[in-house]
Design a protein around this nucleic acid. Structure first.
Length: 465
RNA sequence: GGCGUCGUGGCCAAGUGGUAAGGCAAGGGUCUGCAAAACCCUCACCACGGGUUCAAAUCCCGUCGACGCCUCCA
């Protein structure tokens, strides 16, 4: 039984889907007006791992991730660049899709966009007005009335009275209650707009997700996810809108990932302390980002430093090394030892599943993987041949696949390969002749070419990296 | 001011009532011509102060501190 921490109840709960074996999961994507950063990557990776694990456990996951392509920031940026806002957002959507694919994030089953959901959004707002959960203001805006929902604030644990509306921004005059939020915003001169019953305008931020949810997954969903900075007001408002509209419980489980931290602060566009995904990938392998995410709880802040990145890289080396094929020509382990390795790996697989079942406890799951690694290494040291290592390696590979780790070996140019082999041959001769200085010199030369040499019992092996 | 999360070894990080997983780093050792890799060993009483309990990192109260949200934000 999978258990999931539900933000709504602040408890771990048994995961029971609305329909057997089907998971409807909606994850808030990004507003596309700028390069995405590693904080966005964290969120995408968290939900990618969750999705992969649920699929591994036999669920058919309908994974929806939206793109907010109509928004103030997009309009501002587009105006600054003299570009059409939709063209601009389309460009960043393409960039982000590239980022995700580089990060080995599985494509969502669908990626709705606000600009393509307009009729349903308008219909949704009309429905809310009919139910008296929303009202059109004289200025052309439409607001959601927070006091119309008795349990408004249930997700974030706030009471309307406690909130300091307008503490930092001015409250719109047209609002009946200061916490009311915009469903529809009247267009200002020169802004992109859509026709609506309330005149020219565009949707507010929150309504789009309620509408796209309805369009893609229906009235009720199993999992709604996103960064924990979205709990309030975004997700709170989504719940209010959707439940007011359908009269049904919106999402069963609310999952929120912690924020990526750099220099003790959240990484965010507004703070300007950003490392873009593209810049990260120019320096580090995509697996490093994923390993960083996996090495801590998805709900906790992720400490992003050179040191944690280095550590992640080393851990990956360890996994990669364990997966390297054994030598076919070795005498081999005893039958007992070989079967002990296999059963150890099978036991570790059970530990892995137990860990992941418990609210996707990836750090604990990784520990199970390292048990397999140690078993493989010990067996290899003990003379195990390729066939004896393979069952454990197959299990290890299966589980690292579940986590979405690629663990690809580094590669060099094939043109250099002949030269590498020649140098190794020369070095082997030097070693036979006990010409250690020459041998070490050749090893240094290979190192400079990006080749690592290891002199094992059965001979010298080499690899890129 | 309100709401929430949290404070575990040099770093990252599990564990939420029965005497502290794992990874990285560090030190020692085995192996090696030397290395590298691997393996073995060593390295914490869990922010602080009270309390509950036979027993607490784990529950309760308080203090201090960090971070997030209350405004666009993954």
């Amino acid at each position: 039984m999978i258990r999931i921490y539900n933000t709504l109840t602040r408890k771990k709960e048994d995961f029971v889907t609305l329909e057997p074996n089907i998971v409807k999961m909606y994850v808030c994507g990004v507003t596309v007006y700028n390069d995405a950063h590693v904080g966005h990557a964290m969120s995408a990776l968290v939900f990618d791992v969750i999705r992969r694990y649920l699929e591994y456990r036999g669920y058919n996951v309908k994974h929806v991730m939206n793109y907010t392509d109509v928004d103030d920031k997009i309009i501002n940026r587009a105006n600054a660049l003299g570009e059409d806002p939709l063209a601009l957002s389309q460009r960043y959507i393409a960039d982000y899709n590239k980022n995700l694919s580089d990060l080995n994030v599985l494509p969502a089953t669908s990626n709705p966009q606000v600009s393509k959901t307009m009729p349903l959004i308008i219909e949704f707002i009309q429905g809310l007005i009919r139910k008296e959960a929303a009202y059109a203001a004289p200025n052309g805006d439409v607001y959601f009335s927070v006091t119309s929902e008795e349990d408004y604030g249930k997700l974030s644990g706030r009471k309307i009275e406690d909130m300091q509306a307008g503490a930092r921004i001015e409250v719109e005059e047209a609002k009946v209650h200061p916490m009311d939020f915009a469903l529809w915003k009247a267009a200002k001169p020169g802004e992109i707009f859509w026709e609506s019953p309330w005149g020219k305008g565009r949707p507010g931020w929150h309504i789009e997700c309620s509408a796209m949810n309805l369009a893609e997954l229906g009235e009720q969903i199993d999992i709604h996810g996103g960064g924990n900075d979205l709990i309030f007001p975004h997700h709170e408002n989504e719940i209010a809108q959707s439940e007011a509209y359908t009269g049904k419980e919106f999402s069963r489980y609310w999952i929120h990932n912690g924020m990526l931290q750099i220099g003790g602060e959240k990484m965010s566009k507004s703070l300007g302390n950003i490392v873009s995904i593209q810049d990260f990938l120019a320096k580090r392998d995509a697996d490093v980002m994923r390993m960083l995410v996996l090495s801590g709880s998805y709900r906790a802040p992720l400490i992003f430093t050179d040191e944690t990145q280095d550590a992640a890289e080393k851990s990956l080396d360890r996994l990669r090394a364990a997966l390297r094929a054994g030598r076919a020509d070795l005498g081999g382990l005893s039958l007992e030892a070989a079967s002990a390795l296999t059963s150890q790996a099978e036991a570790a697989k059970q530990s892995f599943i137990e860990a992941m079942d418990d609210d996707f406890n990836s750090p604990l799951a990784l520990a199970a993987l390292y048990e397999i690694v140690k078993g493989i290494n010990t067996a290899r040291d003990g003379g195990a041949n390729a066939a004896q290592l393979q069952p454990a390696q197959t299990i290890l590979r299966e589980l690292t696949d579940v986590l979405g780790l690629r663990l690809a070996e580094k590669t060099g140019s094939s043109a250099d390969e002949a030269r590498v082999l020649a140098l190794i041959e020369e070095r082997n001769q030097a070693r036979k002749d006990k010409q250690w200085a020459r041998s070490d010199q050749l090893r240094d030369q290979l190192k400079e070419m990006g080749v690592t040499i290891e002199d094992g019992k059965g001979g010298t092996t080499w690899r890129w990296g």
